[in-house]
Amino acid sequence: SLSVDNKKFWATVESSEHSFEVPIYAETLDEALELAEWQYVPAGFEVTRVRPCVAP
Rank of each mutant, 00 (worst) to 15 (best):
A26Q: 01
W38M: 15
A36M: 04
L33C: 07
L35Y: 09
K7I: 11
T12N: 03
T28P: 01
N6W: 08
E17M: 11
E34G: 06
F9Q: 00
E14K: 14
Q39G: 05
T12I: 05
P56T: 12
L33R: 15
Y40P: 03
V22P: 00
D5E: 10
S19C: 07
R51G: 06
L29W: 14
P23C: 14
T48A: 04
P56R: 03
A11H: 01
N6P: 11
A43M: 15
E34I: 14
L2W: 11
R51P: 01
E14I: 12
A11K: 00
E37W: 09
E31F: 04
V13H: 01
P42N: 07
L29I: 10
K7C: 15
Y40L: 04
I24F: 04
V50W: 02
S19N: 05
E37K: 15
D30V: 11
F9P: 00
P56S: 12
L35K: 13
H18P: 01
Y25I: 05
Y40K: 01
V54I: 13
A11S: 02
V22H: 03
Y40S: 04
F9D: 01
V41Q: 09
A43R: 11
C53F: 06
H18E: 11
D30H: 12
E21M: 06
T12Q: 05
E34C: 10
S15Q: 06
Y40V: 05
K7E: 04
R49H: 15
N6Y: 15
W38A: 14
I24S: 00
I24W: 02
E34K: 15
T12V: 05
E34H: 11
A32P: 00
S16V: 08
P56W: 11
N6I: 14
D30Y: 10
E31Q: 14
S16D: 08
L29T: 04
E17H: 14
N6E: 07
C53I: 04
L2E: 10
V4A: 11
A32V: 02
Q39S: 07
A36G: 02
V22W: 04
E46S: 10
I24L: 04
V47P: 04
V47Y: 00
F20C: 07
Q39C: 15
S16K: 12
I24H: 00
H18W: 08
V54Y: 13
E21R: 05
F9E: 00
E31S: 06
E46R: 14
V54W: 12
E14H: 11
Q39A: 09
A26D: 00
T12Y: 08
S15C: 12
I24Y: 02
L35D: 02
T28L: 02
S3H: 12
E17Y: 13
S1G: 09
A32Q: 00
V4T: 13
E46P: 01
I24G: 00
E31D: 06
E31C: 06
S1I: 11
S3A: 10
P23F: 12
F20A: 04
W38S: 14
A36R: 01
E31T: 05
P52G: 07
E34P: 00
V4N: 13
S3F: 08
A32L: 03
D5T: 15
S3V: 13
L33W: 15
E46T: 14
E37M: 13
E14V: 14
V50H: 02
A43Q: 15
Q39R: 08
D5Q: 14
F45W: 07
S16N: 11
E34S: 13
K7G: 06
W10F: 06
S19W: 12
V47A: 03
F20I: 05
E14G: 06
Y40Q: 03
P56F: 10
T48P: 04
L35N: 04
I24A: 01
F9C: 14
S15K: 11
T48S: 05
V4K: 13
P56I: 11
P23M: 15
Y40G: 03
F20V: 03
N6A: 07
A55W: 11
P23Q: 08
V50C: 00
C53M: 06
E37C: 08
Q39D: 04
E46C: 11
Y40E: 04
A36K: 00
E21F: 06
W10N: 01
E17S: 09
P42K: 07
L2T: 12
K8G: 05
P52A: 08
N6G: 10
I24R: 00
S3M: 11
V50M: 04
Y25V: 04
A26V: 02
V47L: 04
V54F: 12
R51V: 13
V13E: 00
S1A: 11
F20T: 03
K7T: 07
E27M: 14
W38R: 15
C53S: 09
S19E: 05
K8L: 15
V50F: 02
P23L: 15
V13C: 05
E46H: 09
F45A: 03
S15H: 05
A43V: 09
N6M: 14
E46A: 08
